[in-house]
Amino acid sequence: MKILVPVKRVIDYNVRPRVKADGSGVDLANVKMSMNPFDEIAVEQAVRLKEAGQAEEIVVVSVGPAKAADTLRSAMAMGADRAVLVQTEETVEPLAVAKILKAVFEAEQPGLVILGKQAIDDDCNQTGQMLAALTGRPQGTFASKVEIAGDSVNVTREVDGGLETIALTMPAIVTADLRLNEPRYASLPNIMKAKKKPIDTKTPEDFGVDVTPRLKVLKVSEPAGRAAGVLVGSVDELVAKIKDMGVVA
């Protein structure tokens, strides 16, 4: 079985994003970029399935600028075998990403696609579900456990009420939540090896996908700030404050 893992290059999660003064977006100039943390978890899961003998090949794919090749190399250093870079300098919305991924899905015929549940820049939480819809395949979103059993995959999902397990007929689409696993750090030899692994570069046009955005971003602004608070010196003062708020009798 082949596993396809889409990975996105995003602002590093440790960086505090700054809104541009002209309201046109978030300033990404000279900001550290990394693989979306959820996608590292997706790659890790694929590598573990391969190590367990349940998958033969891992293909990673990224839709993004030339620099997204770095993200693909990181994924290959973790253990992915080869990569597809669908290169575009445009911002690509989840629907268009899903359409491109559908074309890659059809070409590669994976048994499983593992995505991140959301990208930490745009926080859309859509791409996996959209890919599942477009390919007509089942979806296991927000996964905290993935177990292959014959021609189906059991996915335990983190849902509002706790945990839920569903069984999906493969090929299936899974989106990774935080507790699925803890991604490994790539070793130096593996980073070196990844440099020699192949990246096949394509464009959205190669797949006949129009990436023109459907949504127009009118402006991007800072959220409302909070007024400065007070520090109290003792539990008694805190008790008095809480009683003032009227939350206890």
Partner: peptide, 15 residues
């Protein structure tokens, strides 16, 4: 919200 609520985007949909 985008970027974990560190920015708020105003978007228009013509869908």
């Amino acid at each position: 919200p985008i970027y974990a609520g560190n920015a708020i985007a105003t978007v228009e949909s013509a869908e």
